[in-house]
Design a protein around this nucleic acid. Structure first.
Length: 360
RNA sequence: CCCGGCGUAGUUCAAUCUGGCAGAACGGCGGACUGUAGAUCCGCAUGUUGGUGGUUCAAAUCCGCCCGCCGGGACCA
């Protein structure tokens, strides 16, 4: 695989923003196996974003020859009051997440890293203090939205530690690339701003699209100054709203019912969660066969090879939402089937969710 | 430890002062309209009023105690 092919693989959808593509190219040119990571707060069940998209993107980078670390940020989850702040439960959810990703195709050679592995390292905390000393309170405050909380929920002083910890994580693991959803970009920008001041390299950032919840667009505001990004974060699929969130191991029945109820206005592509799934999960910018079965009275079966063709037909009302939904249900069903199967065979990993109430 | 505020439907809150059938909005569910969903229209259900004891014909409401959350203060050799 040459550099351009590797570059395309890394930048492939659902990737949405690369900071910067040129830096990524020169990284690939100068380093045989750059190191990347993606961090998560273990909390709640994995869904199409935290499970499927994360696994797809991890696999892309690994296929492109990147050494990949999946980081399970137990302490961050604790600060963010996930799983009731119970580190024991958080750890169990982390083990569950490992199985989700592996079942969805992440190669076994991935490295799992836990934040508890280096929280007793003074270098780690020393770097946090150095990051904080290079940052103003205002700057850190603006980063707090990476925790996915609204202003009213940002009341605890411990939360101010969070962005600096995330920056310190990047250097602790000696990463070249920080990969995450668009909602984490402020942490990576902080690392890119502060790192050089501390004599540390700027990480390349790979940010992927946040899938909308099945309810469609929500205008909440307050997550980003950029209106498009703000809407993307506001509307994202969230485990706290299970009826508009497809979990990585939903039953076929649950999956179909959720898709059936999903917001999907005919002819409207923007803010359409079903179209987002087609674009970012099913096509992902590549050519493939995508055959939609239709009764002959509605035009009979139709095959698309590119998302752009499908998008054009949908926008011109030549493709009805109902027919598209049927296809998306079937595709997603087979995509998540291995994950569902894994937890059918290993139900013990789901026990942690039995007693716990869902936390955001 | 002290002072104050608060605790009511899934959620945000009203009703508390002045005791008299516990309500609204949003959300949810069902139906109509759509070859999906949403929107719209029609209809339905929201509940141990934090717990407990008391006063009263009658308590979400008044009184006692307890629990929890929030804010402030005190303590800090």
């Amino acid at each position: 695989m040459d550099i351009e092919e590797r570059l395309d693989l890394i930048c492939r959808k659902p990737a949405e923003e690369i900071v910067t593509r040129n830096e990524l190219r020169s990284l690939l040119e100068t380093k045989e196996h750059p190191v990347a990571y993606q961090g998560f707060e273990p909390s709640g069940k994995a869904h199409l974003g935290t499970g499927v998209e994360a696994a797809l993107k991890t696999k892309d980078l690994m296929d492109a020859g990147i050494k990949f670390k999946l980081f399970l940020a137990e302490w961050h989850a604790w600060i963010n009051n996930k799983m009731g702040g119970d580190l024991e439960a958080i750890r169990k959810v982390g083990e569950y997440f490992q199985k989700v990703w592996l079942s969805l195709g992440v190669p076994e050679t991935v490295e799992f890293v836990w934040s508890s592995e280096f929280v007793d390292d003074s270098d780690y905390w020393g770097r946090i203090i150095r990051v904080l000393k290079e940052s103003t309170v205002a700057r850190i405050t603006r980063c707090l939205t990476i925790m996915g909380r609204k202003e009213a929920e940002l009341q605890e002083a411990a939360q101010y530690l969070y962005p600096a910890m995330q920056v310190s994580d990047i250097y602790q693991m000696e990463l070249d690339i920080a990969c995450s959803g668009m909602d984490q970009r402020k942490a990576h920008m902080l690392a890119r701003d502060v790192g050089p001041k501390l004599g540390l390299p700027k990480p390349v950032a790979v940010h992927y699209h946040l899938l909308a919840g099945l309810q469609g667009p929500i205008k909440m505001g307050g997550f980003d100054d950029d209106e498009t990004i703000d809407q993307e974060i506001s509307s994202k699929m969230a485990k706290s709203h299970p009826e508009t969130c497809i979990f990585a191991h939903d039953s076929e029945k649950e999956l179909k019912e959720k898709i059936r109820k999903a917001y999907c206005p005919a002819g409207e592509v923007e803010g359409n969660p079903i179209m987002e799934i087609v674009d970012h999960i099913l096509f992902r910018g590549r050519e493939r066969e995508f055959t939609i079965e239709r009764p002959s009275k509605f035009g009979g079966d139709v095959t698309y090879w590119q998302y752009e063709e499908l998008k054009k037909d949908f926008a011109e009302n030549n493709l009805h939402p109902q027919d598209l939904k049927n296809k998306v249900s079937a595709e997603l069903n087979s995509l998540i089937a291995p994950c569902r199967k894994y937890f059918e065979d290993h139900p013990e990993y789901l026990e942690v969710f039995r007693e716990q109430t869902v936390t955001r």
